[in-house]
Design a protein around this nucleic acid. Sequence first.
DNA 1: CTAGGTGCAAATAATTTGCAGAGGC
DNA 2: GCCTCTGCAAATTATTTGCACCTAG
Lengths: 335, 335
Amino acid sequence: MESTAAYLERLRPEGGKRSSKRDLIVNVFLRQEGHLSAEDLVDLIRQEDQKISRATVYRTLQWMVDAGIARKVDFGEGRFRFEHSYRHPRHFHLICKTCNTSSEFLSSDIEALLEEVAAARHFAARQSVLQIYGTCEACRTGRRPPAAPVPTDVLFARDALRIAIATERSGLEFYARAARTTKNAHGRRVFRKLAEEEQEHLGTLERRYQALLAQHPELESWPTFLFFKGAANGLFAAGADELSRGVDDRQALRIGIRCERGSHRFFKRYGEQFEDSEGQRIFLEFADEERNHLDLLIREYRALAGRRTAKTRQAAAPRAKATRRAGAARKRGRP
Amino acid sequence: MESTAAYLERLRPEGGKRSSKRDLIVNVFLRQEGHLSAEDLVDLIRQEDQKISRATVYRTLQWMVDAGIARKVDFGEGRFRFEHSYRHPRHFHLICKTCNTSSEFLSSDIEALLEEVAAARHFAARQSVLQIYGTCEACRTGRRPPAAPVPTDVLFARDALRIAIATERSGLEFYARAARTTKNAHGRRVFRKLAEEEQEHLGTLERRYQALLAQHPELESWPTFLFFKGAANGLFAAGADELSRGVDDRQALRIGIRCERGSHRFFKRYGEQFEDSEGQRIFLEFADEERNHLDLLIREYRALAGRRTAKTRQAAAPRAKATRRAGAARKRGRP
DNA sequence: CTAGGTGCAAATAATTTGCAGAGGC
DNA sequence: GCCTCTGCAAATTATTTGCACCTAG
């Protein structure tokens, strides 16, 4: 995992000079978890160095924002707060007006809808700010939230893994069922192979999830950070549903392709947008895995469609539609 | 349609005194369309009365916010802007950093996802702020946007009508197809009756849409304000799709019930949340219409399920599931 | 030695407040 | 007459800037 020192070295702008003051401010800032106002940070700094000027803190904050180390956030309080990007993915905020705390979440579904809105208006979106104001659970019930805070990137990784696991699990179920129901011997082999691959991926993911849990024992007590309906709950579940209504091997393959494509997109989206830390590695790896599934499915689909086309060409001939679809699938596959 | 005077009378707080200064400020403010800063408003006011103090403008803005006449919005500029609620539904913002203009949209799908996130965190949401920052079409292409601005509530009404029309249209298609495919004579009558009702509603809605268009000739040149996939594109289209794969009358009714329930919820959501103007009336009327469809479908479903249950009870007996579902539907229906 | 970096104090910018007088009910 | 509203000027708050000095490269 990348250290704060390596992270800073990577982001430090060209032509700047080192300075012990700035280093102190940056280090104190990166040690914090929450959303600090400039004043908060001045107070923290003053605990270690009485003489640092407010102006220097402001200037250093601006420097960090320019370098991409910090993000300036506006909770409508009439002043800005700052959060660091180190091991801290992009996110939205829930802001409690009672205790003035904020918690974070990310929703892939919302992000997708935002993109659609921007596209419909021909608007080149660069950044989205989403804040839900209200009262948090702790303030309404009096219960205190769990003690030790978990870094956001860990929550992100946890949820990404959960989504991946759920996806692979329903994928496994889907292919296992397909293997059971198909009458065609080759089809059975294909689906069984796919089911085995899913089984293996599933094992890898579950081990990784357990490892993450071992590192952060309280991890599971924290609420969902990353919301996403697109993969497991949406696509694969619908696919399994369609399957249970009885489809042929070709349709089953097509459903599989649709599902794998959806989850590949999900992992790619978040892998690419990750600025730092473990997250990017995990996600791009998942994206690759999904891509491999997709390729396999497309190859199989192509072969199956070809065989069918040949067979039906001998008998009657109304399979043109299926052949065209196979052609479209080929175009989207690898060369 | 409610006048500004009636609107103010309704919202004016108890125990306050009239004042010609405040009246002037409020009236000038309500005449504006965009998002004004306090300074903008001072400049506008000074054109009509040189002596009005900046402090009074600030105090009046606060008074309007408290009364619900104005909303304070923060575009991250370091100062607040204000927009009035008169004929101006809740919305989100697209903010162009180049020309500093903002345009508005609303997405029922995003709002639904926000509610889910808040519920998952046990967070009592009171208000959501969503801003997409970037560059607008006009700034990128140099083309100027259409001249005469259309009030937001009119755009809202237009899109609501479009959604309603699309919903009714696919509902009509759905029922017409169901009437055509069912073998059962009673089922044919039921679906034909439903199709006729949809036809009539469709006519009403289309006339209303035309009337709105007559009032605002440039209306159709404005981009979508209200985004919603839940009704026409989502539910009914999926329903029609299911139907085309061949379902029996009972299933068709169940699909209809699901669709009508979805669109009823949509209209109720926006009808209830409307603060003012035409919008609320239109939406609640739509909600009622959808509710009537829903009731009719539930009655028919109940009757059909009853008949089936009686019939199958005579022959074999594995219909318990269907009867239980009919019972659940009854609970949700009117007494 | 020289371009940044820093501290201090003053400037700015948006908004609020204390207070004395004006005005509606 | 009382209580609210208004104008003016001063205060407050968050942030930036001018300037003289300091320090790393």
